[in-house]
């Protein structure tokens, strides 16, 4: 698999160098330069939000640092969690004196490192809380939601918690909003072709030219089924059907939808998916608020798409509409 890179081991650092050159609102920080923070630094008096995750998913996770979203993000190597030190630095750099929410996807390495960083920070007096994104319905049964992975739907937690923090809410409230956003969000993806970790010798999985895999995760985690390629409408019908079957208890009639490219799938095909998804949501009696279509959480060159639904009540709908600004997503 061909990649535009120099040395594989420089992939992440050279990517970050380019990212901050293009977007001066972002700054590399931390001993190893593996924390991205807002150029203005943490705002005193505001609850901080620190996230983190492996590289290879831009705009997730690093790209969502900005007003109304994240304060900092720790970055790991491709498909590897950030180091303990980077997590620790991301939390410190997000601290504006009112505590820091650690908000990231439910992955083993990320969890261990943020937990260890929290232990090490106990003596520094920084109060932290944790909320884990777990929107991928294909990665675990509904009875095991705490084992599900976080994928593209994590951006709703970023947006909603970020809006709450920006409005001056305390740590308890920001944490509650983040947990509520996670509980309100469901995602499912499908893959058409694999990706490859820059330092690996082979793609993360193989998929036949005429095949599709439903439910695949953003690191190539195995999905629900693999079969011959089907028309877009049939795939969307299954995806929306599975998402609605898993809808949160008490979910209302407003929903935001994110149709996301996993990297190689073009906008044209995302709009084809959206067209049928919107019709299905209308048939289900749901009204769509702020539809999002584009690459929001990718897996490098993987072809495929995911659909996320975030079920909104008055509080979440209000927070979703407030201004936010990062290099890859602007609201208001």
């Amino acid at each position: 698999m061909k990649k535009l890179m120099n040395k594989a081991e420089d992939y992440v650092d050279e990517m970050l160098d380019g990212l901050i050159l293009v977007h001066p609102s972002l700054v590399r920080d931390g001993e190893s330069g593996r924390v991205i923070r807002r150029s203005a630094g943490a705002r005193q008096g505001k609850v901080g939000i620190a996230s983190g995750g492996g590289s290879g998913h831009l705009p997730l996770f690093t790209g969502y640092v900005g007003p109304g979203l994240l304060d900092t993000c720790a970055i790991g190597n491709v498909f590897e969690g950030p180091t303990v030190n980077s997590c620790l630095e991301a939390i410190r750099l997000a601290d504006g004196g009112r505590g820091v929410l650690r908000l990231y996807g439910n992955y083993g390495g990320d969890r261990m490192n943020f937990d260890m960083a929290g232990d090490l920070l106990e003596d520094e007096g920084i109060v932290t809380t944790t909320v884990l994104g777990n929107d991928d319905i294909a990665s675990g049964d509904a009875s095991e939601r705490d084992k599900r992975r976080g994928v593209a739907g994590l951006i709703y937690a970023y947006k909603l918690a970020g809006a709450s923090a920006e409005a001056g809410a305390d740590l308890e409230t920001v944490t509650r909003v983040a947990a509520k956003a996670v509980a309100a969000t469901r995602s499912i993806g499908l893959a058409l072709s694999p990706c490859q970790v820059p330092t690996a010798a082979h793609p993360t999985f193989t998929l036949g030219e005429g095949e599709v895999e439903m439910g695949m995760g953003i690191h190539g985690e195995r999905g629900l089924w693999r079969d011959g390629m089907k028309p877009a409408d049939a795939l969307v019908e299954e995806m929306i059907g599975r998402l609605l079957a898993d809808r949160p208890e008490g979910a209302g009639e407003r929903v935001s939808i994110l149709v996301n490219s996993l990297g190689a799938t073009p906008l044209e095909e995302l709009f084809i998916l959206y067209r049928r998804a919107a019709a299905l949501l209308a048939e289900a009696g749901l009204s769509v608020v702020m539809p999002l279509v584009g690459p929001f959480a990718t897996s490098m060159e993987m072809a495929g798409a995911s659909i996320s639904l975030c079920f909104l009540d008055d509080e979440l709908a209000g927070l979703l509409a407030t201004p936010a600004d990062c290099p890859f997503w602007k609201v208001g």
Partner: peptide, 15 residues
């Protein structure tokens, strides 16, 4: 070990 990686296995080694 902790500085070299943030992977699950690497972090377990560090632990």
């Amino acid at each position: 070990a902790a500085a070299a990686t943030g992977s699950s296995l690497g972090t377990l080694v560090a632990t």
